[in-house]
C-alpha cells in the first residue's frame, strides 16, 4: 500500500501542514521563508514565483512527513510535478524581456524558468532529491495522474520516496508518498483516498479544508 505521510500547502495568504495541523497566515505579503525552510535559502530571491511556491510547498510537505533535511543530506526521493499552465507566465516574461531589449539581449536567469520542470528542479537542488524528476500534464485531472505516476514509481522501486504536487501562480500543494517497504512514521491515509478527494474538483481552499477534515477524522478513528 502507498501511504500519504505529509502534505504541505501554500497560497498568497496562508500556508500549512496537514498531519501536524499547522496553519499560519502571512497576510502582510512578506514571503515567510525563515518559517518555512529548514535551513538557509540564500538565493531564493532569484527564483521565479512558481518555483518559490513549489519549494515552499515541498518544504512544508517534507516537514509534515518528519523527513530530516539539511544541506549535507541527499535523498533517494523523486518528484512529479504538474499544473494547468505549464511555464506560460515565465515564457511570456522571458520573451517580452528579450523583445524589449530590441532582440539583442536575452537573459539566462529568465530562460531557465521556461521549462515546466524547472520549479521542481529548484526543489530537488535545495532538498537534495536525487530520484526521478518529471513534469506531467494532461487534459484530465493532472493532479490525480501525478499522484498515480508517483505511486507507480514507488511500487516499481524507482525511488524510496516520492513527492507529487502542483503549483500555479497563486498556490501550491505537495504530497509525500511512501511505499510498504519504507514504512515507519505516521500516515494520513493511503494514496487512493487522496486521489478520491482530488477527483472532486474542489477549489484550493476547499481542498485544504477537506484534507484538514480527513486529518481530524484519522485522529478520531
Amino acid at each position: 500500500m502507498i501511504s500519504i505521510t505529509g502534505i504541505g500547502w501554500i497560497n498568497e495568504e496562508e500556508y500549512g501542514c496537514i498531519l501536524n495541523e499547522i496553519k499560519e497566515s502571512y497576510k502582510d505579503g512578506v514571503f515567510p521563508k525563515k518559517k518555512i525552510f529548514p535551513f538557509s535559502y540564500k538565493n531564493i530571491g532569484r527564483l521565479d514565483h512558481v518555483s518559490r511556491l513549489t519549494c515552499a510547498a515541498v518544504a512544508l510537505a517534507l516537514k509534515d512527513a518528519g523527513i530530516e533535511c539539511s544541506p549535507e543530506l541527499k535523498h533517494d526521493a523523486g518528484i512529479i510535478s504538474t499544473n494547468t499552465s505549464g511555464s506560460f507566465d515565465s515564457d511570456m516574461l522571458y520573451f517580452r524581456d528579450y523583445l524589449d531589449s530590441g532582440r539583442t539581449l536575452s537573459r539566462g536567469n529568465l530562460f531557465i524558468y521556461t521549462l515546466p520542470s524547472s520549479p521542481s528542479g529548484e526543489a530537488a537542488i535545495y532538498f537534495g532529491l536525487q530520484g526521478p524528476l518529471i513534469y506531467i500534464a494532461g487534459k484530465n485531472n493532472s493532479m490525480v495522474n501525478a499522484l498515480r505516476t508517483a505511486a507507480e514509481m514507488l511500487r516499481d522501486n524507482e525511488a524510496s520516496l516520492m513527492l507529487a504536487g502542483t503549483a500555479e501562480a497563486d498556490r501550491a500543494i505537495y504530497f509525500v508518498l511512501k511505499g510498504e517497504c519504507n514504512s515507519g512514521g505516521e500516515a494520513l491515509c493511503n494514496c487512493d483516498e487522496v486521489m478520491k478527494v482530488l477527483e472532486k474538483d474542489l477549489s484550493f481552499k476547499e481542498l485544504v479544508d477537506e484534507f484538514q477534515n480527513l486529518r481530524k477524522g484519522s485522529k478520531v478513528s
Binding site: 530530516e68 541527499k74 535523498h75 533517494d76 536525487q130 516499481d156 522501486n157 524507482e158 524510496s160
Partner: peptide, 13 residues
C-alpha cells in the same frame, strides 16, 4: 554527503 532512504530491495516488478 550522505544519502538517506536508498532502496536495497529488488527493483521493478
Amino acid at each position: 554527503m550522505k544519502t538517506v532512504n536508498m532502496q536495497d530491495g529488488p527493483m521493478f516488478s
